[in-house]
Structures are given as structure tokens and as C-alpha cells.
Amino acid sequence: MTMFLYVIGFSILVTMALALARALAGPTVFDRILAVNMFGTKAVLLVAVVAFVTGRADVLDIALLYSLLNFVGVVAALRLVERGSFYATERIHVKTKPGEKL
């Protein structure tokens, strides 16, 4: 049973690594939002696995808090992306002339 939990924990860590890679590379903002959301979900799972491996059931409360915050964060991010195409495209260097308004 413990071996089973170890395997699960390790696979969750690998999934977290993949999500992090997407969050770092993400060509668009939506990739990053999805990757951060996925990373948060995997963190919830990892905390739950750790809680069962170590036998500390009180840690599960933290997992609940993580999932709640994850939800709030993603909703806030998507609300802001909704405001026009401003945030949907990533412009790396915005060059402005001295008098030009951005």
C-alpha cells in the first residue's frame, strides 16, 4: 500500500514538472493560466498523498485550502483576460517614441 502511494506521489511530481515546463514556455497567456491551474491541482493531490503517507490527516485541510485558492486565482485571471485582446497577446518589448501614448 505504501509502495503504491510512493508510485502515485512520484507520478504526480512528474506531472507537476510537465505543467511547470508549460507554464515557463507557454506561448500564450492561456497556456500559462491552464498550466498554473494544473500545477495547483497537482499540488493538492501531492499534499493529499503526503498526508496519507505520513498519517497526518490535518494536512488535508491545507489541500482543501489550495484547491479553493486555485479556483479563485484562475477565475480572477480569466476575468482580466476577458477585458479585450490586450492581455491575450504577449508582446515582449513594447517600443514607444517619446511622445507616443501606449
Binding site: 507554464a23 497567456v29 500559462r32 500545477f39 499540488a43 489550495y66 483576460v81 492581455y87 504577449e90 515582449i92
Partner: peptide, 15 residues
């Protein structure tokens, strides 16, 4: 360089 991405990454870092 994109501030939006930076804010999201900060959330991840903090997690």
C-alpha cells in the same frame, strides 16, 4: 517580460 505571466508565475512560486 510579460507582467501578466509574471504575476501568474508568482502565484505558482508561492504555492
Amino acid at each position: 517580460r510579460h507582467l501578466f505571466a509574471m504575476a501568474m508565475m508568482f502565484g505558482l512560486y508561492s504555492l
